[in-house]
Amino acid sequence: MADDTAVDAFGTPGDTVPSESVTIYDVAKLAGVNPSTVSRALNRPGRVSAATERRIRAAAETLNYQVNPMARALPTGRTSIVGLVVSDITNPVFFDVIRGAEAAATSAGYTLVLTESEESDEREYERAQRMLRMVDGMLLATPRMSDEQITALARQKPVAVVNRLVDDVLSVVPDVQQGIAEAVRHLRSHGHSRIAYVPGPALSWMARRRGELLAQRCEWAHIELVTLDPVAPTVAGGRSAAVAVRDSEATAVFAYNDLIAIGLMQELVETGIRIPTDISVVGFDDIFGADFTSPALTTVKSPLREGGDHAMAALLARVTGAEISADGFDLATTLVVRGSTGPAAR
């Protein structure tokens, strides 16, 4: 009832004024409050009473008033905008990272802006530099640029990294060791003694990390590991690795990510190789669609949404001067067994 009365007092939604001519003082006059109260209500929700905030927002809507983040940044030095850079917007692995980061940003009253690098370290650094001018902080998801470039960005404004570890930069990295250990035990229990690894991009820190941990676990389990040449982290990249996988004489293959695993499976099946009868395939990340393949893909599930959420929350805490230790985040990986793995071929 209170909301209806407020809207009636301010007129109908059709009686609007062009937003360009409306100022915070017009909103304050219509709402019957001070301009500073309008600023608190619109820029930092919860700083005024709920009734007053509703009245101010109703006035702003009636007048078609929009907060200008650039103008707001002049007295405060903050835009309430935060940036996110991903290496490939078409890669499903980033869907949940983006959702998690967006949820954390929205809950803190920030607007998220997004750009991609198309797997280019040069474009990534260039676009990050450009974005950094307009945001309060930046989250880099699985970045391809060098540690030195990331550190240079972090010297300018708060920066956080997800799926990569950079010294002296806030980094949120899932514990991939647990999931890889489970995958190796799973393959060993099925009699596999020779495994091939298809790495992702040469510039990918996570590709190297997964390869190193896989080598350690295979050595411990007395499994021979054959590391193949890096490929693009795409379905096409997986297809391109099929000949090398076949020639490796491995009975199982571990792919850097699910897209590579899916492309590899497609190419192998088309050449008459049966999965998992002739070769078992394991992916990584458990992206949307990993269970759509035939057979469904066995993969190491990574907490992608939680990683994006935690990394953004930690970044915004740093933007506001608070401190959050990334070590406190529980981001374990785990094996999801489906139909693409089975007993080693005899």
Rank of each mutant, 00 (worst) to 15 (best):
G200N: 09
A255F: 02
A255V: 05
P174G: 12
G211I: 01
V198Y: 02
V243C: 04
A255G: 08
R217W: 09
R209F: 01
R210M: 03
I223E: 13
R246E: 10
V253M: 01
P233A: 09
A261V: 13
L264H: 04
A215Y: 03
I223P: 10
C218Q: 13
V243D: 15
E270Q: 14
T234L: 10
R188Y: 01
R208W: 04
R239T: 05
M265T: 13
E267F: 10
S204Y: 13
E219Y: 00
P230N: 09
T227S: 01
V235N: 05
I223S: 12
A232Y: 05
C218T: 15
P230I: 06
Q178W: 10
G200A: 08
S240L: 01
R208A: 10
E249G: 08
R210N: 04
V176I: 13
T251Q: 08
S240D: 00
H222K: 13
E224C: 00
G200P: 12
E270D: 12
E224V: 00
R246W: 03
A236C: 07
G238M: 08
R188G: 02
Y197E: 14
E182P: 12
P201F: 01
S189M: 15
D258T: 15
A207T: 00
E212I: 11
S204W: 12
E219W: 02
H192C: 02
E249D: 13
S248Y: 11
W205F: 02
A241P: 03
S204A: 14
R188H: 05
A196R: 14
L259K: 11
C218L: 14
G191L: 11
S204I: 14
V235S: 07
E249V: 05
Q177I: 03
V231G: 03
I223V: 15
S193N: 13
A244S: 11
V235Y: 13
D229P: 06
P174T: 06
